[in-house]
């Protein structure tokens, strides 16, 4: 028992204090959060756009659907199928090793900046697909009288969506979006496969340098948990604020 305890203490020292190793965690948290938040923003923008297209298509009677709407809806469906049907890690590898060099041949060096930008793009596109279906379910949940009232006043489809439907849909799907945010935060740990030094990579580097496993991996588990709890708390606050219009 005593020997075990000494081992833990040594692990603690080597994990955090030796050679300022704690910096791996601080920098890692920064990168993990940065990728998560930026990817979420990109995901929400993409997701809302796709959701609006998909619901516009589904709400129109069949003979009134324009060719353009059909084509864009087809593209959206293709995007949803591919992104939701392939593993995130594969998407990330394809993005970094195939698409990124083709798009930005000047930015292929594995610098933190390039890797972060690439990861944000890959995770944003991935998250967008899930957000799209979440937001679409929110749009579908709004009584169609709300759309009719908006249109009857002379507002067009897009304005009614923007000022009436989306705000209400957003409020209804906030718990599901929170779930997506939490999933996203944890999923970013796979950026280690392209070599981005996020929180998980930090622990792996420390393990490689010190042969310690218990303390570094438990430490990042606790850190992820703390981040998730923090996010849940923030989301709860936001939800209460948005629920203002539901208080009788």
């Amino acid at each position: 028992m005593e020997a075990w305890w000494e081992g833990v203490q040594k692990g603690f020292y080597q994990t955090f204090i030796l050679k300022d190793n704690y910096m791996y965690f601080l920098k890692g948290i920064r990168i993990t959060l940065l990728v998560t938040v930026l990817a979420l923003i990109l995901g929400v923008i993409l997701g809302v756009l796709v959701a609006v297209v998909r619901s516009a298509h589904d709400q129109q009677p069949e003979k009134k659907r324009g060719l353009l709407l059909r084509v864009i809806d087809g593209i959206c469906k293709f995007y949803l199928t591919v992104v939701r049907g392939t593993p995130m890690m594969v998407q990330l590898l394809i993005m970094w090793f195939v698409i990124w060099p083709a798009l930005f041949p000047g930015s292929v060096r594995a610098t933190d900046g390039n890797l972060i930008r690439c990861a944000v793009l890959a995770f944003g596109i991935n998250s967008g697909a899930y957000v799209a279906e979440i937001v679409r379910s929110g749009i579908m949940s709004i009584d169609k009288g709300q759309m009719e009232a908006g249109r009857s006043l002379g507002l067009n489809y897009v304005s009614t969506m923007r000022y009436i439907i989306i705000p209400q849909a957003f409020k209804n799907v906030l718990p599901a979006l929170g779930n997506e945010l939490i999933t996203l935060l944890k999923e970013t740990s796979i950026v280690t496969v392209i070599g981005l030094k996020d929180l998980t990579k930090g622990a792996m580097i420390i393990q490689a340098n010190t042969y310690q496993a218990l303390v570094p991996f438990l430490a990042i588990a606790v850190m992820y948990l703390a981040l998730v709890m923090l996010l849940s708390w923030l989301l709860g606050k936001m939800e209460r604020r948005l629920r203002q219009s539901d208080i009788r």
């Binding site: 009232a149 249109r151 009857s152």
Partner: peptide, 21 residues
């Protein structure tokens, strides 16, 4: 049609006030 509807008010059975405003 959006221009036309500006001149035709409509009142619904279920009111349809905008719930978020």
């Amino acid at each position: 049609i959006n221009k036309v509807r500006r001149h035709m008010g409509m009142v619904f059975q279920h009111f349809n006030l905008f719930a978020n405003l």
